[in-house]
Nucleic acid binder design. Sequence first.
DNA 1: CGACATCTTCACAATTCGTTCACGTCGCCG
DNA 2: CGGCGACGTGAACGAATTGTGAAGATGTCG
Lengths: 225, 225
Amino acid sequence: MSSQRTVLVVEDEPTIATAVADRLRAEGFAVHVADDGPHAVEAARRLRPDAVVLDVMLPRFDGLEVCRRLQAERPVPVLMLTARDDETDVLIGLAVGADDYLTKPFSMRELAARVHALLRRMTKIAAQDPPIVLGDLEISRAERRVVRGGHEVHLTPTEFDLLVHLAGRPRAVVPRERLLAEVWGWADASGTRTVDSHVKGLRRKLGSDLIRTVHGVGYALEVGR
Amino acid sequence: MSSQRTVLVVEDEPTIATAVADRLRAEGFAVHVADDGPHAVEAARRLRPDAVVLDVMLPRFDGLEVCRRLQAERPVPVLMLTARDDETDVLIGLAVGADDYLTKPFSMRELAARVHALLRRMTKIAAQDPPIVLGDLEISRAERRVVRGGHEVHLTPTEFDLLVHLAGRPRAVVPRERLLAEVWGWADASGTRTVDSHVKGLRRKLGSDLIRTVHGVGYALEVGR
DNA sequence: CGACATCTTCACAATTCGTTCACGTCGCCG
DNA sequence: CGGCGACGTGAACGAATTGTGAAGATGTCG
């Protein structure tokens, strides 16, 4: 249950990156490092880290842009590293969704403390974010776990996101296009069977009665009120 | 938020469209862009967005016309973008069902704030679009389900859409030409028996007393008040 | 590197749906 | 009352949509 937390460090300066990564690993985190904007967004998408440590100055596109994109895809706590004590950076950073900031130079001790604080704060918020209970189906978004009929079911990340989106409007039909947009971030909905594939997975794991298909439109979650 | 919100942006100017879309994505919305009137109506039908950001000036037919058609199909909050501070536009916009408006030039920040406000307001007012209840007939558009006399009846997509359009004006005669236009999107109403065919299906499934034929004109839903 | 998990696509089968056709019936009008 | 056009109906065809198993690609982890 208290599974290891994952932190994504986005920093192009190898010296700093290594130092930060080592310290956070010593604190018990699983750490991944990305060295520019595109890599960071990419890595976050795959990794779904519990927190991101983000340098403002980066190759390709900067930390602010990264932050904006991360928040657009999935809310994630961000600790921003600013080079100078420039209030502008800080304000902009907070505007695009950063949750805390640290001015270089900073001590590793302080960094670790901030990351811990960030995660504590976030898990508190997540804990207030109540599980979705629909009949005999229970979805905990904070823990990303699903229970049906009393026992836990393992879902892949995509399956989980899909289920959450369907559960957001219980019994209502969610168009495939909309699922593609919200879960996958795709604009083009033609010629792909991805949604169907994952619905198949959900039905296999959760029972074939859970998801109703509405021909020509989309899918709907069928649950007791 | 329980589930991500989808916004449809209707704007033919690529620069503005991109800027608006990016900002809204950064705010956590799933965004789709349509670049003219027909595309907008089409996209809204498939996507069922939670809100629409709509430019008044558009190719093919203008924003007001789009707004009118959207409201005719399904109530959806609309934020209208007007080029100049012309009160006429604003008044007409509000008349055809827009819920708020913004005069160009506007800041992205303001746009985002308006969209958020729109959704907050709307979710409070209409938690869900309520089912249509007509005598012993119950139609849930969100679930795309129909119940008559207490038990559920399965309708095909076209049958369902047809029924909804008839139920939109209970007891009134809806001309076939109008049905063809609204349900099928056909301009040409001659030489086809498609409407009749689907009315047949509805009568078979829901009872022959439900739909009255008005010779030479169209059909009407006959239901208790 | 090799085992494993995940995501997406592909090809094929099964199902569902839409439209038209042919023909019988009905209603309006002179 | 007779005719003509509109409507009802069942069948049937093709088209579109979905279910499904498996393969390929990619990435993760030890």
